[in-house]
Structures are given as structure tokens and as C-alpha cells.
Design a protein around this nucleic acid. Structure first.
Lengths: 197, 197
DNA sequence: AGGCTAAACGGACCACGGTCCGCTTTATAT
DNA sequence: ATATAAAGCGGACCGTGGTCCGTTTAGCCT
């Protein structure tokens, strides 16, 4: 009787097969192309499958649902943005004083969220809710708050700062109430000042 | 040539026909019944129509979409709750000092939102976004902030206080991060204190 | 009462998200 | 090389949200 567990069991819950990986990539690229061309709303799962040259079932096996696929696209964009927070130029990246970084963070987050708004909406609950994306952003704010010497329940305070930058709230303010972006941004800066003082 | 504008043109954009009103009521009641029995997720438009004894088209003509129907149900609940804010006993209702009212507001809002969470989720963008519902809540917070002598952009500050009480943010904190309700509530009280000081 | 019009009705119809299952491919063990 | 099992595949199929349009009805005017 041979041991069938030669490779590490830990860390990799499912070592994806080669064809599967290729299809995942093809699907992501197809989806990206179609979203760029027709907007998130004008993209059907069947078209994505066709564009990638696979069957519809495959799309769902790889991404669970339409929202899951959209979330994967968002995650990709999110990763690029995270890089500029982690290792980009100050004040967003490291090197500037914490307060400057926090304010730069707020502005940048607001802008990128709005740029990808319709994709994020299409990702629905899986959008900002992607644990990876949210937890990065949350961790970063907690870190800055700590640096600023803020005391209290930092995870919760971080949420309070992040919540007004989420799509549903921004939609309310910008679209329904009709506030201009600058006003919303100024409001966030004011909020940040109140929270940290 | 007779004047066909005998009745006031202002205020009532569309004087609903009698059968239409009856059907709307029947549909709301049917929907309420079905949601109570199967949860918001287990209710189809066709079943609502059947239960109310009308055709499917009628449901959509009255409520636009599934989300619209759910939003109408939310609005109804919301109205009841508003009554307790406007004319209920203190500290939620009038009579208590503004700070007490604000804190009572936060707690009550948190609770009722959670009680109707799945309905609100099913209402999607039309949920809290129903202009009527949102604007009441927003006006009330602005009013309390003014009473407290808070200066700044009150509409925006009000949003900052309301955002963490919205379903997507609560889902994140309670379900994904697993914080207990009391912690979230305490965090909101802390936030309120920081905002008004 | 009778006639006229706009509003409302209803259910056939369509498109899309999501599932299911018999078939094919990959990877590994011998 | 070959065998075997697991993972992946694809497209027929289903349920549901939403639309469309020919028919019915409420409300009003004479």
C-alpha cells in the first residue's frame, strides 16, 4: 500500500488542474473585454462563455455565480490599487505622516470606487464583501489610526470611516441627493478629523 | 369646448383608478403573507400574483420590479417605525434631551434594520434607498445634530452616522467579521460621541 | 342608458442565471 | 505504455424576472 499523500496537504486546498487554470484565465480575460465594451450590465454569462470558447457550465464552476465573476474582476483591480497603497509614492504610499496618508487614502478610495462603480454594483454582496479586499482596506485604516494614537475599538472605528465610501452610500449622496463629489469628499475629511481627535 | 381641468392638477400626478387601488392592496397583503410564511427569498412574483388573484403583468405594472415590491413592504414597516420616532414615548420619541434621543435612535434603528434584514436585502437598491424612508431618517438625525449645536455640513455628517447602520455594513461586521451586536452598537455610540463633540 | 377613451388587465412569451449529468481530459500509479 | 480515478467539461434543461399586446373595464360626458 503506497502513500498517496506525497505533496503537502496544507495551504493548497485544491491544486487546480492545468486546463482548469487555462480556462479561468481565458474567462477572466473575456469578461474583462466584454465589460469594457458593453458595461457590466450588458454582459451575460453565456456570452462570456462563448467569448472564452468554453461551455456555460464551466463559467459557473469557476466563479460560482455572476456576482462571483464580477467580484473576481473587482478583486483584480483592487489588487493593483493595493499595490499603490503598500509601495506607491507618498502620501498614499508609505513615507508620509499618518494623517496625510489617511486623507490621501480617503480621496483615492473614493475615486477608485467611483471609477469601478458599476462593476462593484454588479458584484453585489460579493463585491466589497470579498473578504480579501475588505480586510486589506480595513487593516490599513486600523494601522493608520493606531499610528495616530487613536484609542478605542479600532476595527469598529475603521468601519465607520469606510462605510461612507461604500457604493450604496455614495449612490445615495451623489445620485439621489445630488451632492457634488467635492462636498462628499470634504465631508469625509471632516469625519476623519472628528474621529481621530 | 368644455374645460377638462376641473380638478386640481397639482399634487396628484395620477389619480389611481378604483380597481387599480384594490389590486395594489390585494397584492401588498398577499406579498406580506407570503413573505411571512416563506421568507423574502422564497417568494416569486407569479405566486404573489396568484395569491392576490391577478395576472403577473399587474404586479409589475404596480411595483415596477421585484425589488420595487419588496421596497413597498419595507416602506410600510418603515412608516410604523417612523411613528414611534415622531410621536412615541421618549427617549426615542420627543421629550428627552437630544443626546438621549440620538442614542435611542441609533439603537432602535439598528434593531429594526436587523429584524427586517432579509426584506431590506431583497429590496436591493430600492430598499433604504426609497427616498421617503431615507429622507425621514436623515432629516431626523440632522435635526438632532442641530439641537446638539453641532456645526459643519449636517447632511453629510448625518450620512456618516447612518452609513454604519445600513445592511451591507452590518452584514460585514456581524456575519463576515463575526462581531457581536453589542460591540457594533457600542461602536456606534462611540462614533456618535466623536461626531458631536 | 349609451358611447367613448384612457387606464388597467392577464397570460403568452422571452432572456438570462443557475443546475445537472453523461462524456472527456488530465494526472498519477504501476 | 497502460490503467484508473478524479477533476473538468458542456450544453440541454429549468425557474423566474420582466415585457408585450390584444382584450376588458372604470370613469366621464352627453
Amino acid at each position: 500500500m503506497t502513500d498517496r499523500t506525497l505533496l503537502p496537504l496544507v495551504g493548497s486546498p485544491a491544486p487546480e488542474r492545468a486546463d482548469a487554470a487555462r480556462n479561468r484565465e481565458a474567462l477572466l480575460q473575456a469578461a474583462r473585454r466584454l465589460v469594457a465594451e458593453h458595461g457590466a450590465g450588458g454582459v451575460t454569462m453565456e456570452r462570456v462563455a462563448a467569448e472564452a470558447g468554453v461551455g456555460k457550465g464551466t463559467v459557473f464552476r469557476r466563479f460560482e455565480s455572476r456576482e462571483g465573476l464580477m467580484a473576481a474582476l473587482v478583486d483584480h483591480l483592487e489588487t493593483d490599487w493595493q499595490a499603490s497603497v503598500i509601495s506607491g509614492p507618498p502620501p498614499l504610499g508609505p513615507g508620509a505622516p499618518p494623517l496625510d496618508r489617511l486623507l490621501a487614502f480617503g480621496r483615492s478610495r473614493l475615486e477608485t470606487t467611483l471609477v469601478h462603480a458599476d462593476l462593484i454594483r454588479a458584484a453585489g454582496r460579493a463585491g466589497s464583501r470579498s473578504y480579501a479586499a475588505y480586510s486589506f482596506v480595513s487593516m490599513h485604516v486600523r494601522y493608520l489610526l493606531r499610528e495616530l494614537g487613536v484609542s478605542g475599538d479600532l476595527p469598529i472605528l475603521a468601519t465607520a470611516l469606510l462605510a461612507p465610501l461604500e457604493i450604496p452610500i455614495l449612490d445615495q449622496q451623489l445620485t439621489v441627493e445630488g451632492f457634488p463629489i467635492d462636498r462628499v469628499h470634504a465631508g469625509w475629511v471632516d469625519l476623519a478629523r472628528r474621529v481621530i481627535s
